[in-house]
Design a protein around this nucleic acid. Sequence first.
DNA 1: TTAACACTTAGCATAATCACTAAGTATCTA
DNA 2: TAGATACTTAGTGATTATGCTAAGTGTTAA
Lengths: 110, 110
Amino acid sequence: MANERLDLVFSTLSDATRRAVVERLVGGPASVTELAAPHDMALPTFMRHLKVLETAGLVRSVKKGRVRTCHIEAAPLMEVQGWLAWQRQVWEQRLDRLDALALSLEKDME
Amino acid sequence: MANERLDLVFSTLSDATRRAVVERLVGGPASVTELAAPHDMALPTFMRHLKVLETAGLVRSVKKGRVRTCHIEAAPLMEVQGWLAWQRQVWEQRLDRLDALALSLEKDME
DNA sequence: TTAACACTTAGCATAATCACTAAGTATCTA
DNA sequence: TAGATACTTAGTGATTATGCTAAGTGTTAA
């Protein structure tokens, strides 16, 4: 199960600055300057984070004149959610089996 | 919104080997040797991955005799799921507003 | 009581990540 | 058209991550 996309998306989301950009962009598109404003770092450094987000497919952008406008791409987030949902399902199934086992053991003691 | 726990959990899950360990452990506990078997790497290297998982709180382990048994801890996964669910909610609310806007524009054209 | 087993520690090499500054390009405004 | 604006590129340094081998510790089985 070598899913390189998941590697990329998880590692991209492991940085607080990049998660903050996602949190901002789910609310609607924004320019690079707008996105960078709340972050106390040099612009090239911030642009690097944006590039990481784009490489992971989490953000798309278009440049019009001198302004680059960024928007979120939901699909990769859904992929992560899917993986988590799968783990949760397997985990809960196991707990159910353990419950069933405990119940049957109780029954045996009657 | 500086959530260091999320940093840690996301970066931990950004590695395919570590995700594979999680996928194995949601099905039930296992020893280090068992966990390492499918992975083509030196044992100390694999142990390092396990340590990363433990540091992130995703895995707990107990040693009995010479065998260390590992099990999953679900809470950090839930935290990630929570963050994703939040983004999804904001995103869908925005889409709903856009839909409503489109509808009202259509109405205006009648 | 030896030998195998299951880790565990230590140390090292390579590569990736994250920050910076300095300087450059393209676009818009006055 | 001069200057401000909005990125963009290039280059540097520090830190962290991921892999390895070699050697060590404690436990169990023969």
